[in-house]
């Protein structure tokens, strides 16, 4: 098929950038091509959640978005959350809890958890499941990931109650 380059401009991890893309290119492919390799290709059909990023603060599957769709939006990837030397609170809990095996699903898990923590103030189990049920893990059986997240949420909820 004839190539038809177009440009798309959006904010990525706080920086406004313009990218050359194709109408058919998925956001995930653009992100990985441009070096944001934390978002992973898993199923490619919006099931596993390993490609989860935030669009305007909401968790979305970047494999089910055309890059052109995010024009003018604010995209956040796992690269905005923490670093190897300075992990986020949830990342540290995952490490401390031994909740990571192959690690492939973890960036998506963290992005969904970030959406949860930034959009909700009460973290009952049903709400947490709602935010996290679009992320699959084939290694851990979820228990340690859930426990790590629960510890962070319980602390955050306690802080919310105090303030």
């Amino acid at each position: 098929m004839k190539k038809n380059p177009q440009t798309v401009q959006f904010t990525i991890n706080g920086e406004s950038k313009t990218f050359i893309t194709e109408p058919d290119e998925k956001l995930l492919d653009l992100l990985r091509r441009e070096g944001y390799k934390g978002a992973k290709f898993g199923c490619g059909q919006g099931t596993c959640g390993s490609c989860t990023v935030l669009m305007d603060g909401r968790a979305v599957y970047s494999c089910l978005l055309y890059a052109m769709q995010v024009e003018g939006h604010e995209i956040r990837t796992i690269e905005s959350i923490g670093t190897h030397d300075n992990p986020s609170e949830f990342q540290q809990e995952l490490i401390d809890g031994g909740a990571v095996q192959c690690g492939y699903c973890i960036p998506g898990m963290i992005m969904s958890a970030t959406a949860l923590m930034e959009n909700e103030t009460h973290f009952d189990d049903e709400t947490v499941r709602e935010y996290m049920d679009g992320n699959l893990c084939r290694c851990t059986g979820y228990e340690k990931i859930w426990s790590a997240l629960r510890r962070v949420l319980d602390r955050q909820e306690a802080q919310n109650t105090q303030s």
Binding site: G46, G49, M55, R58, A59, V60, S112, E130, Y131, G134
Partner: peptide
């Protein structure tokens, strides 16, 4: 709507 697919899909 709560029962349709996943959180990520419902956002789009």
């Amino acid at each position: 709507c709560r029962r349709i697919s996943t959180h990520q899909i419902r956002n789009v």
